[in-house]
Amino acid sequence: MIQESDDVIVKAVARLLVPFIVVYALYVVMHGHYSPGGGFQGGVILAASFVLLGVSHGLEKTRRRMSEKAAMVLSSIGVLIYGGIGALCLILGGNYLDYAKLGKILRVTPAEARSLGILGVEIGVALAVMAVMCTVFFAIFTAEESPEDYRSLE
């Protein structure tokens, strides 16, 4: 369990950096089509902002923004977006993740539909990766709170 840091420098700089980290993560997600980056990297950077919040302001304040339950729900939603877009392409008569078929729904040309489909999948991947990374972080740093689970394993 991480307590809130009593160091004013660390807390102030973390408070300053977290919004910029989130903006940079969104930039990495949005530019995944044609520059280095993408859903996985953007999701990890998003999770890093929560980890920074956790180590500087304590787990209680981090839980108010992202609880374990919300992280599990968000990871499921991310996988649902990814699989849903792929299955939608199947339903519309293409292969799995054949984004060009989405043009029928979105009323755009197949090229634009490919771009938008990749963006949708990237957002799904980013949500899932961010939520799973947060779950791993919480699981590691709250291990001593539930010792009976671990004792039963030994």
Partner: peptide, 16 residues
């Protein structure tokens, strides 16, 4: 700018 913010803070936190 962000390197200049983050690196001294990390050094400070590690030494503390």
């Amino acid at each position: 700018v962000f390197l200049f913010l983050a690196q001294p803070t990390a050094t400070h936190a590690i030494s503390r």
